[in-house]
Design a protein around this nucleic acid. Structure first.
Lengths: 309, 309
DNA sequence: GTGGATACATAAGCCCGACTTATGTCTTTG
DNA sequence: CAAAGACATAAGTCGGGCTTATGTATCCAC
């Protein structure tokens, strides 16, 4: 019978690329990994890795074994989760990585629902790219990420997604500005009319920046950027001060803000929020439960902001 | 992480019922099993077995773990099969238990199709009850069994079935007898007309015996039995000699036989032939392949006998 | 009810195997 | 061409799992 621990080593090698990194991830030394791979190869009867320069690469047989390892290790984790649920212990730790707005709005709602449940959460705030990378490296169990209609998210292989909600992108104006444009709060605005306004945006490292560029581009202009901040509450404060206009997802709005007029777009852009998990963890009841809680929280948050605004 | 070898021990305990039998099945001693169960219990954090008289019984947590173990071990076996297929080695041993007629007709056809394939077969001829018990004990990987319309087969839990073919039960008469009854070869006969004939049947240990009792009972009589033999070719030889009449599935007919007139029944009885495998082995490509081959063989055999008779 | 048999648990000791440190070989890079 | 990086091999240590031996509880027969 194939040894599961060795399969796990191979799986990690596939994830981390080098023996040294694999060893570190598994709290081992490089020779230990090397030896175990040699034993696995003997067990399998076929080479599972081959030299590629000075590193190793998986053979097709190795890929095959990794695919099986995902299933086996996934179900082992599911078994442990089931056990934890059954004994009611507070084990069942789920590590979540979420982008800022979700970490601020959805996750507190989940925590509230959690009560004294048997689920323990560990939250890290990370931008989608980092969250997905952490997911791949098994440093996190569930990633909460987003994609824009004008900038779709692409997911790494071996992942499973579920959609939590659609978050509309809104235009934030100073109320006087809205008056000058002749639109009332909540009325749709054609972005083309903002072509000459000074814009307030996140820095170019944020995916929101690219979304704004594309959205304005689709409206036929390149925004002239007056201020940059990756903190949406800074942007909103600047809009309130009359410094310019901003485009931002509804969930990113701070709870309390100064004088602001929010408007949907004539050509709507939305941000879709997803949960992403590794394929192997699909069976874990604690993760399934968390996804359910997130969906409920998303439904609530969506309803609240919709009725409020 | 739960240790898979310990899960396997628990799974075997579930199958064999006692520590001693489990130890024997795994080529271990009883204390080894006992110790590993203790360690598993420590790992799991909940009792997985409890004393029941002087033997052990699985707790709900234990049942849960066994269910997961089926998945894990099933996929590990699948991984090994995939590996065997990939390296083209002649490993990929599938142990089959089949009842006599199937072992005589279907299995040779499978063997012929197999050619120099990467699949190695190991065949044991067993009656359905024994075959299913062997399957449960993991002494065999695939059971080829049958059930009669008048005597349905019930399958143990945790098994998966697929139907191979329907095998009609025929009445075998001496040609002179058929003449006296005024029916031609192949014409249906009402069993009630055979109420006073001497019957030739298998022994009461064969499920065919019970089938004959029920079928005759449905026709309104109890057969008077003149000869018993569990070997169908003996029965056919006796029918040819004019010793009496017999009821037997078409597949059970010997290839060459003396003067015989075969007739379907007015109220047809059929024997359905199934393959049965443990749920955990559903992923093994070698077993899937064998089932496919059996289905093809069954289609051929069914067609041949239909057109010939 | 008592003795024997059966079934599992515990104790003690042995041995294999997996890990670590140390060293070697090959590749890449400056 | 030297030096660093990456993996393999060698040698030694240590833990874990197996065995044999012994203990304890349950079931059955007489």
């Amino acid at each position: 019978m194939l040894d599961v621990r060795r399969l796990r080593i191979l799986q990690h090698l596939d994830t981390y690329g080098t023996v040294a990194a694999t060893a570190e991830a598994l709290h081992l030394t490089a020779p230990a990994v090397s030896q175990q791979l040699a034993v696995l190869e003997r067990e399998a009867g076929v080479p599972v890795v081959e030299k590629q320069g000075r590193t190793l690469r998986l053979t097709p047989a190795g890929e095959l074994l990794v695919a099986h390892a995902e299933v086996v290790l996934g179900d082992l984790a599911a078994a442990e989760s089931d056990l934890a649920a059954l004994r009611g212990g507070q084990h069942g730790l789920v590590r979540v990585a979420a982008f800022a707005s979700a970490a601020r709005t959805l996750m507190p709602a989940v925590w509230r629902r959690l009560a004294d449940d048997s689920l323990t959460l560990q939250l890290v705030e990370q931008e989608p790219e980092d969250a997905l990378e952490a997911l791949r490296k098994r440093e996190t169990d569930l990633a909460v990420v987003h994609g824009y209609t004008v900038l779709p998210r692409d997911f790494p292989a071996g992942c499973e997604q579920s959609t939590l909600m659609d978050d509309p992108v809104l235009l934030a104006l100073h109320p006087d500005h809205a008056d000058r444009l002749g639109v009332r709060e909540g009325e749709p605005v054609d972005l083309a009319r903002l072509a000459d306004s000074p814009w307030l945006t996140p820095g170019p490292e944020a995916s929101c920046y690219e979304m704004i560029q594309r959205t304005c581009g689709a409206a036929g202009f390149v925004p002239s950027i007056r201020a940059r901040s990756s903190d949406f509450s800074v942007l909103i404060a600047l809009v309130s001060a009359g410094a310019g206009v901003a485009l931002l997802p509804r969930l990113a709005l701070p709870a309390a803000s100064g004088p602001i007029s929010l408007h949907p777009l004539v050509r709507p852009v939305t941000r879709t929020i997803f949960t992403v998990s590794r394929a192997g963890t699909a069976r874990r009841p604690d993760i399934r439960r968390l996804v359910t809680l997130l969906q409920e929280a998303a439904a609530d948050v969506g309803r609240l902001t919709t009725t409020t605004s």
